[in-house]
């Protein structure tokens, strides 16, 4: 049995997971930084990670009932993400690797979202829609890599949603009881015209954000702004996904990343899946958001294929693209 410990610290969550190759999740311990106002402040987040990291790590080991000696490798998300946050996880991982003499596995955070989704849902070769606060990517595996079919040209979908509700004075907190403030606000809203942008295979949300806020300031009802902005943002994403399905000939869709927990977005994708006769898989909400388990699991896949890095070379990569990682499994 192979045991891998994984560390996640790319943005707002410091997480440690331990998995075995059965596959089984032995431990899932997390600390989440919640800003008191505004969005993530990278240095504040990193400071809170440093304070909480030891207890999160201890908690994971005690959940798994293993000593760190019996772990076969340490995996860490080296990017993409916020520099100060990434460096906390990277420093701890390098220290564990060096001190305990464990191989170090460099994991790409985006690949990890995809792989945990595939493992938990059983999707085989899907068109993957990866949507979170920092990423909006439509990707599929081809020739040993996850190729980017389409992506956002500016801000990520989650970032768009968060910024909109924040500017409307509805957040933080952004998500309460698993429901995003935008969904709450959109209830009972009616459609008003907002700019719908699909450029070839890419989406764009910054113009929509500006237009939605302008509409609100010019007196459009807040529920109509929320409803319409969400409708336009989600629809453009689903349209690009449909193009991907048609062009790549895939028969499965897999939704991963934090925004995959949005029930309304899942409904839209379900409508698309029925319409095109393909299967829809959605990562369970618990693993849609950032966590250490997905890093451990991807690290395990990589470790089994001999991908490791020397601690002195394990530097963080804030802009580490999904499609630059070789996929051997």
């Amino acid at each position: 049995m192979v045991l891998v410990l994984g560390i996640e610290s790319t943005a707002h969550t410091f997480g440690v997971g331990i998995v075995s190759d059965e596959p089984r999740i032995l431990a899932d311990s997390r600390f989440s930084y919640v800003p008191s106002k505004g969005g993530i402040h990278p240095r504040e987040a990193a400071d809170s990670f440093i304070k909480n990291a030891p207890s999160v790590l201890r908690e994971a080991l005690s959940q798994a009932k293993v000593a760190i000696d019996s772990v076969d490798a340490v995996a860490v998300a080296l990017g993409p993400g916020l520099g100060p946050c990434l460096r906390v996880g990277a420093t701890i991982a390098r220290a564990l690797s060096t001190y305990y003499g464990k191989p170090l596995v460099p994991v790409n955070h985006a690949v990890a979202h995809v792989e945990i989704g595939r493992m938990l849902t059983g999707a085989g070769d899907p068109l993957v829609v990866y949507i979170s606060g920092g990423n909006t990517v439509i990707t599929a595996r081809y020739g040993g890599r996850y190729r980017v079919f389409g992506e956002t040209l500016d801000i990520a979908l989650g970032n768009f949603m968060d910024t909109l509700v924040r500017e409307l004075g509805l957040a933080p907190p952004y998500v309460v009881g698993g429901v995003h403030a935008l969904d709450r606000c959109a209830e009972g809203g009616k459609y008003v015209e907002l700019p719908y942008v699909v450029k070839g295979q890419d989406t764009s949300y910054s113009g929509l954000l500006t237009a939605a806020l302008r509409a609100y300031r010019s007196g459009v009802r807040v529920e109509d702004v929320c409803f319409s902005a969400r409708e336009v943002a989600y629809s453009s994403l689903v349209e690009v996904a449909e193009r991907g399905l048609a062009q790549l000939g895939k028969s499965e869709i897999l939704l991963v990343g934090g925004v995959a927990a949005s029930r309304y977005l899942v409904e839209k994708f379900r409508a698309l899946a029925e319409y095109r006769g393909v299967k829809l898989y959605v990562v369970p909400p618990k693993y849609a958001v950032d966590n250490g388990v997905m890093i451990a699991w991807t690290g395990l896949l990589m470790f089994k294929h001999g991908v490791t890095v020397e601690p002195e070379n394990a530097s963080v990569k804030q802009r580490w693209r999904l499609d630059s990682v070789d996929i051997y499994w």
Binding site: E231, S235, V238, K268, A271, Y275
Partner: peptide, 9 residues
Amino acid sequence: RKPYRAPEL
């Protein structure tokens, strides 16, 4: 027509 888009949109 796309079933995943609001009819007006």
